[in-house]
Simulated assay, not measured.
Amino acid sequence: FSYYFGFFDRTTELRFIDQPGFLNSITSDNISTRGINGEYGLAYRRGLKSNNFLSLGASFEPQRKLASKKVSSTFIFVAPEFTGSASDVVDTLIATPDTGDVVQPMHYSLGASLNLNRKWTVGIEYDFWEWSKLEILGNNPALANSFSLGVGIEFWPDYRASSDLLKSGRYRTGFRYGQSRVILDDLNLNEFGISFGFALPLLKSRSFSSLNVALEYGQRGSEKRNSFSESFTSVNIGVTLMPNQFDRWFYKRKIE
């Protein structure tokens, strides 16, 4: 189970750039939310011949309502630019706080992987989000359902190696394709990416604790489909701490 809490601000501006003396406005919506949600999952692993393993998994997160509150403030000013000074403000309107729910969309995931001789692992995963059912205090932001399909390969030269850093590391590459929740020209934005990465053990042992580095290049949208496209590159660095029987620091000493 997870406990969600936080807030976000949304600002809308109305300016008359070429009309001095006209009343301009800035409206700020502050929305806070909190609540509990749960994600349920199943996992299955079966040994095959020749030291191979098949793993299957599924997870499901149901639609939930999170208690929320919105406070809106509107500042009306005449100056071409709002500097934040009280002298710029002609009038201030603060609406009565509005309470309600944020409807969190349903999400499910399906995955499978095949491990070959403890060296090669091939995996596939499918994710689906029902963003069309998202509601924020009764308002639907008109998003589309989205999905993502990913395929990846991992190579582990020698899982028993402890002194050779390169042999004990794991090397990965993958590809993903999907459609985002954003709608442009009445169509979802397509998105794809290709990634490369590696994981190196933090300790000079057969520990599963590792340093993870990944580089991804992708593209979102299409000039032909949505009259919009962009490319992006991301670098991800993380640390996995997974104590096991090979980590000496995890053992409780009899004599301190």
Rank of each mutant, 00 (worst) to 15 (best):
G84T: 09
F22P: 12
P62N: 00
F82V: 11
N37I: 01
V78P: 02
S68P: 00
K70S: 00
K69S: 07
R46K: 10
I31L: 01
S73F: 04
K49P: 11
S72P: 03
G84W: 01
F77D: 04
T33S: 05
S87G: 11
T27E: 04
P80L: 06
F75R: 06
V89F: 01
R46G: 09
S68R: 09
N51H: 10
R34T: 07
F22S: 12
N52F: 00
P62D: 15
R64T: 10
P62R: 00
V78I: 12
G57Y: 05
L48D: 02
A86E: 04
Y40V: 15
I76F: 07
L42H: 09
G47R: 08
N52G: 04
S55W: 01
F22A: 14
G47A: 03
F53Q: 13
S32P: 02
R45D: 11
E61S: 07
P80D: 09
S72F: 02
A86G: 10
G35K: 05
R64K: 08
R64I: 09
S50L: 09
N30V: 11
A67S: 09
F77I: 15
A79W: 05
N30K: 15
L54W: 00
G84Y: 02
N30D: 07
V71F: 01
S28T: 13
T74S: 09
T74P: 01
I76T: 04
S50T: 10
E39D: 09
F22W: 11
R46D: 10
A67Y: 05
I31R: 11
V71M: 03
S28P: 15
R46M: 14
T74C: 03
L66S: 00
L66G: 00
T27W: 06
S50R: 14
T74K: 10
S55P: 01
Q63T: 11
K69T: 05
F53L: 15
L54R: 12
S87D: 12
S72T: 02
S55A: 08
S87R: 12
A58I: 10
V89N: 03
F53A: 12
N37P: 01
Y44G: 13
P80W: 08
G41P: 14
A79R: 15
F82Q: 13
E39K: 05
S25G: 05
R45E: 14
A67H: 04
E81N: 09
G57E: 12
S28W: 05
S59G: 15
N30T: 06
P80C: 06
A43L: 10
G38H: 08
S55K: 12
R64H: 08
K69M: 04
P62E: 03
R34M: 07
D88P: 13
S73L: 03
F60Q: 15
N52D: 15
F75N: 07
N51P: 15
I76D: 02
S72R: 12
K69C: 05
R34Q: 06
L48I: 09
S55L: 10
F53C: 06
S59M: 04
G57I: 07
N51Q: 13
K70P: 01
S68I: 09
L56T: 14
K69H: 03
T27K: 08
A43N: 14
V78D: 02
V71L: 04
R64S: 10
